[in-house]
Structures are given as structure tokens and as C-alpha cells.
Amino acid sequence: MGKKVFVNKANITLEGPLTVERAKELHLLLVERLDGMPEQAGGAAIDLCRVDDIDACGCQLLALFLENLKRRGAAPMLTAAPAAVRERIVTLGFGELLALQPEP
């Protein structure tokens, strides 16, 4: 991974499986994004449209990320989760923590 340039500082698009196997990599990425977040970012959207799998570890990481964003004054929001991912999040009981928007 080279040096990253984030085009859109407020919106984050995650990709691939959000699972324990990738937990470290995702953690680094999210920490990086968190550091690069402008203060008072307002509504930060986390786009899950390219996420194809998520497990409890991934949910926890996302939840922690959201909490950290909130602590920095942002109002994060998960958007565009594919149905399977959304269903998995609900199954795992993370529906409230991840503040999933009701399905359109």
C-alpha cells in the first residue's frame, strides 16, 4: 500500500469482506481515515455498497469506528449496505449500534 490520498474526506467507501481475516488491515485503514477526518465533519457517510461479507469482528470494528467518529463530533451514517450485509448486521445484533438506516 502506497501513500493514500483521500479524495473525499468526509465520505468513506469500504470494500470487500469486513471479517476477522482482514481485521488488522481494516483497522489500519480506519485509523488512517479517522486521523484524516476534519474536525466537525458533520455527517460522515460510510458507504458499504462494495462490502460483500461481514462478521461479528467486522461489525465490532465498524461500531468502534462510528463511536470514535462521534467522539470527534461527526454524525456518521452507514449507507447503501447490500441486503445480505444488512441482514447479517441485524442478525448479529449490531442493528442499533451501527444505526442502520431503515431500508428505503
Binding site: V31, L34, Q60, A63, L64, L97
Partner: peptide, 26 residues
């Protein structure tokens, strides 16, 4: 009904991403 809760809320940078901080209530 299943509900997950985080037991701790560490700074993201300091958290171990593979360690479970979640507690479930069913």
C-alpha cells in the same frame, strides 16, 4: 431478539481489532 453492546470504547488507534469487546444479549 439479539442485541450487541460494546463493553469498552477505546480510541480506535489503540484498539486491538481482533479482540472481542462485544457482549451479546439475547
Amino acid at each position: 431478539h439479539c442485541n450487541a453492546q460494546l463493553m469498552e470504547l477505546p480510541e480506535l488507534a489503540e484498539a486491538d481489532p481482533e479482540r472481542c469487546l462485544t457482549r451479546w444479549e439475547f
